[in-house]
């Protein structure tokens, strides 16, 4: 699947749920390339901004969309990668900040 198809496919699924792609399309494409690369090398779309272990069970929490997206978007208006954001974030009504990592460090190996 190429990046543009993945973009459309995911957008149609996620926007109705209130998760919008970052308005910076180049940035999003970069992250989607990361997801496709991770699908290729690990067999699952591990988060492009987290170190996957290669063990799907261990990484279940960071298979995109990750388990931390909901609390991150609620609190910061964006997920850890800034891939998925709120409507307000895209309208610059929410400050764009680096989202702190919620994932327990012992899972990173």
């Amino acid at each position: 699947m190429n990046v543009e198809d993945l973009y459309e496919k995911l957008r149609n699924i996620q926007e109705p749920r209130g998760y919008y792609f970052n308005k910076d399309k180049d940035f999003v494409h970069e992250l989607l390339r990361g997801l496709l690369a991770n699908k290729e090398r690990y067999g699952y779309m591990a988060c492009p901004c987290r170190l996957a272990s290669g063990d799907r069970e261990n990484d279940a929490d960071i298979i995109c969309p990750c388990a931390y997206r909901e609390p991150d978007v609620l609190e910061y208006g964006a997920c850890y990668c800034h891939l998925y954001v709120s409507k307000e974030w895209n309208e610059d009504k929410t400050p764009h900040v680096a989202v702190p990592e919620r994932r327990p460090p012992e899972k990173i190996k």
Binding site: E30, L31, G34, L35, N38, C49, L51, C81, H82, A98
Partner: peptide, 9 residues
């Protein structure tokens, strides 16, 4: 960094 991470880039 990570090769797939936008923030790292």
């Amino acid at each position: 960094a990570l090769s797939t991470c936008g923030h790292c880039k």
